[in-house]
Design a protein around this nucleic acid. Structure first.
Lengths: 196, 196
DNA sequence: GTTGGATGCATACAGTCTGTATGTGAATTC
DNA sequence: GAATTCACATACAGACTGTATGCATCCAAC
């Protein structure tokens, strides 16, 4: 006979519960946005109670924070997975990878629309520190070594904003190649015009 | 003797009330953001009741919408006021004007952070239709007539995103000249690289 | 200029949400 | 195996949103 009440370690239970909550929360945030999603909805979808949610997270914002960090990790992973073996043009590969990653439904809303409003700019900057901006800055330093450090930083920042906006359009159905071309135009222009 | 209960036309009363509410709401949205501002706070600051607010606006979002549209008009006006008589370099003048306009405290939060989350991308696009993107597209068409229409649209969109991001940094204290230079670098690169 | 109705706004209410306090059984520690 | 901690459920207090209702003022028609 099987055991009726399966014994589980606290650690296992906690991880299980966190995953359930985050999964349910992610689905709702993606579908309806942060403001329109309530904690009762989240716990109902996860088939638990609000007690569990507030045991694992400080508040609703904290749930959102966890979802965003997890999503950022997933995006980074997707980009890296898409980039392996594509050594000939890392910029193009990275662009395509990011665009594809951001086409996962709702990601744009989650990461580019809601996250800045809910978490603030500072935290969002920290979230994708390893992502776009860093890669762009590194690429700039390599392709245009004559640029001053401050210029590299400024250019990387506004280029990454341009890039994100392009991804947003692509995610909403705009033709990917148009925006890859557009971004490449910016990039090439910067590199060509930079002091050598 | 003065009249005790001054008679006022309905039209006058309504306009007065709307202005009071919008002024109070703007101050609070700017200071604390949309989500952290409650309608009781707004009407308290305006020294009226929620009845007045819900008489003039459909809901809290509708108040925010009105504030954003008014702010967009103010920004456009400020830019145009700053640009008069500066015929030698319209791009530079426009950049400085926008940067300066966006340094009004809280405008960045209102227009660039909260508005997309609260009103959605479509409406935000409509709000600043006359603003940045249109000017950039027009400037592109003039400076680089060889570009295809689709490319102009795409470039204008991502350039305006870069531009807004630059303004955001400047509003938070970054040196303006650094970001004007950075944006000009993008611009010049696009123009130089475009087919003639 | 009086009357009937519309308008502007205040008050009152119902429902929902958030975060916290408290309680209970299972797991861990000694 | 007793004591304690942990994971979670239940219960509660406060606040907020949007709506329904009531009253006073304004306006239009006669």
């Amino acid at each position: 006979m099987q055991e009726k009440s399966e014994r589980k370690s606290n650690k296992y239970r906690s991880e299980e519960m966190r995953a359930r909550l985050l999964s349910a929360a992610r689905a709702l945030f993606v579908e309806k946005g942060f403001a329109e999603t309530s904690t009762p909805e989240i716990v109902k979808a996860a088939e638990v109670t609000r007690g569990a949610l507030y045991h694992h997270f400080a508040d609703k914002t904290d749930v959102f924070r966890a979802v965003v960090w997890a999503e950022a990790a997933a995006i980074t992973e997707a980009i890296e997975a898409a980039a392996i073996g594509t050594e000939k043009d890392p910029l193009l590969a990275g662009s395509r990878g990011y665009f594809e990653a951001m086409r996962v439904p709702g990601r744009v809303r989650l990461m580019l629309i809601d996250a800045p409003a809910v978490l603030g700019l500072a935290e969002v900057a920290a979230v994708d520190a390893g992502n776009g901006r860093g890669s762009i800055a590194a690429g700039l330093r390599e392709a245009a070594p004559g640029l001053a450090a401050a210029q590299v930083e400024a250019l990387a920042l506004i280029l990454s904003a341009a890039f994100e906006r392009a991804a947003l359009e692509v995610a909403q159905g705009a033709p990917q190649d148009t925006y890859i071309d557009a971004f490449r135009t910016l990039w090439d222009g910067v590199v060509a015009g930079a002091p050598r």
